[in-house]
Amino acid sequence: MNKDVMVCGVGGQGTVLASKIIAAAAMEEGSTVHSAETIGMAQRGGSVTSHIRVGEDAFSPLIPFGGADLLLAFEVGEAVRNLKYLKADGVAVVNTAAVMPVTESLQSTGYDGSAMAAYLRDRCTCIFVNSEEVCRPFGSSRFFNMIILGVAAASGKLGISTETLLKEIEKRVPARYTDINKKAFLAGCEIGGKASR
């Protein structure tokens, strides 16, 4: 299987852990995996991306434009920024909640993400989730990475079984947070399952 998955968001949203779990789970299922992350200065409130390339047919560490089967966007504006990576028939799982950058607060441009969501809706197959809504039962936006991972898994577009992903969550999340992270993942699965029906 060859599959390219792009994870994008804003520094601090937990994109790195989500992408590590995807990569590890794909390997667990027997695939060759390569990935790459943008780290460094970009970490501090900047745009972050992880490129996960599953299969033998990947050479570039970054997914070429128009190559991603799945775009996992933790922030709606970042989804638009990285839409160029998505295949013509690719699917985007998008958090509609906007993260305001300092520059926007200073200039009061009124960025709230709604124009971004509308733009995406017209241009690709989208599964929208709102982090504020779906994280409410968990009391913290910290668990959104597991929720969106669950959405992607249950939608069938990730090509990895939920069981394998759950196992990797268990391995990679500190023991005292395992249960709540698994719950968040399963809550995401429920949303993803409905969305793909």
Binding site: G45, G46, S47, G77, V80, L83, P101, E104, Y111
Partner: peptide, 13 residues
């Protein structure tokens, strides 16, 4: 994507 709405600028802070 030339018709995309203006993207938020996220310089490192």
């Amino acid at each position: 994507l030339s018709d995309a709405p203006p993207l938020p600028v996220r310089p490192p802070v």
